[in-house]
């Protein structure tokens, strides 16, 4: 079912929208949650939360063209909140690697609990991504939004793993430099 049709169902308060969403994106959303949480049950809960959040936020939102990104964001946020609230629990192994990579390029000084600062940082990152060629941008987004492994990215793009790793390293260095130029201390 097309995203537009699913969104129509939400707008019409037709609860088959949730089933349609689950059928189309349930697996991918759960996979995303599992990449952060090494816990099947917790991942299921995040996905369920995403469905509820979608129900509560469509309308006024109408993510006809970006339904999956819309849902994926909610799932990621829920999963990260869980991680923050319970740091003693085991995390997905890949998460450790991802957070280490993030820490290489994001500013320590930023206080993202302040909405304005968080928005500014997001604006800058989007600006940085907008200046990249498509494939490099895709690689960055797949790694740090979709949390895909280097192997998965390499396989899909027909490149070697070392090539993708190198690209990611250079992108992090470039982002660091970009944010420094904007006044952030990394």
């Amino acid at each position: 079912m097309k995203d537009s049709r699913i969104v129509d169902k939400y707008l019409a308060r037709d609860d088959s929208a949730l089933k349609a969403t689950a059928e189309k994106y349930g697996g991918r959303l759960k996979q995303l949650a599992l990449r952060l949480l090494a816990d099947d049950f917790a991942a299921e809960e995040c996905v369920s939360d995403a469905y509820l959040a979608a129900w509560n936020s469509i309308p006024p939102n109408e993510p006809r063209d970006y339904l999956f990104p819309f849902l994926a964001r909610i799932v990621k946020q829920r999963a990260l909140n869980r991680i923050r609230s319970d740091r003693t629990k085991k995390r997905a192994a890949q998460l450790t690697e991802l957070t280490r990579e993030m820490e290489e390029c994001i500013p320590f000084s930023a206080d993202v609990s302040q909405e304005a600062e968080a928005k500014e940082l997001i604006r800058l990152i989007n600006g940085f991504l907008g200046g990249l060629e498509k494939q490099k941008r895709d690689i960055f987004v797949r790694r740090y939004f979709f949390l895909d492994s280097v192997r998965e990215i390499a396989g899909d793009l027909g490149r070697s793993e070392s090539s993708v790793k190198t690209t990611l390293f250079r992108l992090r260095e470039k982002l660091k430099a970009y944010l420094k130029a904007e006044g952030y201390r990394v």
Partner: peptide
């Protein structure tokens, strides 16, 4: 800000960029 916050920040990536990257998942096949 730590790595977790960083991953949270990436949630703000533009939908268009996300949708474009999503298309490459499974693209080689």
């Amino acid at each position: 800000m730590n790595g977790i916050d960083g991953l949270d920040i990436t949630n703000g990536i533009n939908e268009e960029f996300i949708a474009s990257a999503a298309k490459t998942r499974g693209a080689r096949r």
